[in-house]
Amino acid sequence: MQGIIIKGIGGFYYVKTEDGNIFECKARGKFRFDELTPIVGDRVDIEVQNGKGVIDKIHERKSKLIRPLVANVNQAFVVFAVKNPDLNLELLNKFLVLCDYNNVKSILCLNKTDLCSEEEYMNIEKIMENLGYEVLHIRAKEGYGIDKLKAKLKDNITVLCGPSGVGKSTLLNSLIGKSYMETGEVSLKIGRGKHTTRHSELIEVEQGLMVDTPGFSTVDLSFIEKEQLQFCFPEFKPYLNNCRFSSCLHNKEPHCAVKEALNDKKINPYRYEFYIKTLEEISQGRNKKWQK
């Protein structure tokens, strides 16, 4: 039978087959020799005897995220709060770059918009101009904006990602229409969510699948090659072939179409600043490795 791994805990994998049944499975030992481990989201072939299954084949993955460890995701709801905790633009950009690197379409969900003042809201709107992504303003506790997100779930595997305390679990509960996970108030002392998701798990909702993920406060981009970083910024793509030099990194090179678009206000200056900072960090990291 064929199915999809919806949960994995302690070496056991829970596979939902095409007829809707769920089987607890172990993986065959042959996968260890191929250095291949089944993960949530994998399409698999299984054999079942006496109600217990064995994973016999893992189909080729269309995508693979490392953190969260999940396969075949094609869409991400990147959830950030505008207040409590305050919007962390650098971390937000890191999430967006990571999704683009893995060929996952990002939809930015700004939560708790009712907590900020009109002035703060206008400032956030300015920051979000020409971002290159669809931006939705939501209030997960009240259900505001939830219908727009539900309409995007059908036939997709969607990852729900973002830092702790931004309302991901509340949003998940709103999307599936029941209290799937306990939600906790943000601790005033540390500004983080009390609730922590323990593992990745696929949840069936609106004729699609969602994966809730642990909240975390750091994202590492050092593994990205500096030449590849530019392709993780969708707003750069219309201009990449118009630079004078084919090897242009859009930093100090002359006759750069990306910098011209920046000057013409077609590219968000906050995003460009983040791009340059990340480019320099990647370059410095490579130099340190060579020096060793």
Rank of each mutant, 00 (worst) to 15 (best):
R43E: 11
V48L: 09
E47Q: 12
I46C: 09
R32S: 13
V48E: 11
D34I: 09
I46D: 05
R43S: 08
K26G: 04
N50Y: 05
D45H: 13
V40P: 07
V40C: 13
K30T: 08
D45P: 01
F33S: 11
V54K: 13
L36E: 15
E24F: 00
D42N: 02
K52W: 02
E24S: 08
V54A: 09
K26L: 01
R32D: 01
E47C: 03
E47W: 04
V48N: 06
I55M: 07
D42C: 02
V54E: 14
F33K: 15
V54R: 09
E24I: 00
K30H: 12
D45Q: 13
Q49E: 15
G41A: 05
N50K: 11
G41F: 09
Q49S: 10
K26Y: 01
I58N: 01
G51W: 08
D45G: 08
E35L: 12
V44Q: 04
F31R: 08
A27N: 06
D42V: 03
E35Y: 11
I39D: 04
D42R: 01
V44Y: 09
E35Q: 14
K57I: 13
G51Q: 04
L36S: 14
L36R: 15
R32Q: 11
K52H: 10
E24D: 01
K57E: 13
I55D: 02
Q49T: 08
K57S: 09
K26Q: 09
I58P: 00
G53T: 03
V48P: 04
I46W: 07
V44K: 02
A27H: 08
E47G: 09
I55C: 04
I58D: 00
